[in-house]
């Protein structure tokens, strides 16, 4: 570039200083989105390139983390979502039926008590696994809220959806997670298997 080279260098230095400190969480989130390390690296690289291109539009003093997460999420939705192979999906209707059966057979107090025991016994990898197996839209919102601690307003801006949608996806995502965790607990033998008849 001939003109404004000094300014450009300064801009890049400034960008790198702010942006690189978020690389680990961006990569970790990208990996949860794509479920593939190579895709995750490409997604993070694309995110940084886009963020750098539009860095002059970032308002100083506002939340850079939320801004770059918006770019990450949009890049994923627009470019990678179609490419990502769908994992082995859990039949939620069946699982929810099992859970409903479980609920019907137990008093509310007992369910809570059993839940606590189950959750204590389940390994972290089962919880990570459950998160990877819930619907993509729900997973993104649960990650943004429960892992990264974004407020609803910020999530709404990041995913470009109304706050009502954020609330709905969160509660449904948590419900799916709970259902899956119960299923895992059942498979591990922590709770008794129930017949679907």
């Amino acid at each position: 570039m001939i003109w404004g080279k000094k300014n450009e260098q300064e801009l890049r230095r400034q960008f790198e200083k702010i942006a690189y400190q978020h690389m680990d969480i961006l990569y970790g989130t990208a990996l949860k989105m794509t479920k593939d390390p190579v895709e995750a690296e490409d997604l993070v690289q694309d995110t940084y390139l886009r963020a750098y291109r539009f860095f002059n539009k970032f308002e100083e003093g506002t939340n850079f983390k939320a801004w770059i997460f918006k770019i990450l999420t949009n890049t994923f939705i627009n470019k990678y979502r179609k490419k990502v192979k769908q994992p082995l999906q859990v039949d939620f209707e069946k699982v929810e039926y099992l859970y409903a059966d479980e609920q019907a057979a137990n008093k509310p107090d007992n369910i809570r008590h059993i839940d606590n025991e189950i959750y204590e016994k389940l390994f972290d990898d089962k919880i990570n696994n459950a998160l990877e197996n819930i619907s993509e839209d729900f997973r993104i919102v649960v990650l943004l809220c429960d892992v990264h601690g974004f407020a609803y307003k910020e999530i709404s801006k990041i995913i470009n959806a109304p706050i009502g949608t954020v609330m709905s996806r969160l509660s449904r995502g948590r419900k799916q997670l709970q259902t899956l965790l119960l299923k895992y607990a059942e498979q591990e033998g922590f709770i008794k298997k129930r017949s679907t008849n």
């Binding site: 690389m23 680990d24 969480i25 961006l26 990569y27 970790g28 989130t29 990996l31 949860k32 390390p37 690296e41 993070v44 839940d115 606590n116 959750y119 972290d124 919880i127 990570n128 998160l131 649960v142 990650l143 809220c145 429960d146 892992v147 948590r174 997670l177 709970q178 965790l181």
Partner: peptide, 17 residues
Amino acid sequence: KQVKNLVHDCVVLERAP
């Protein structure tokens, strides 16, 4: 609340290579 706490405490984000 339970699911929220579990996700917060147990979900591990891999570090960037």
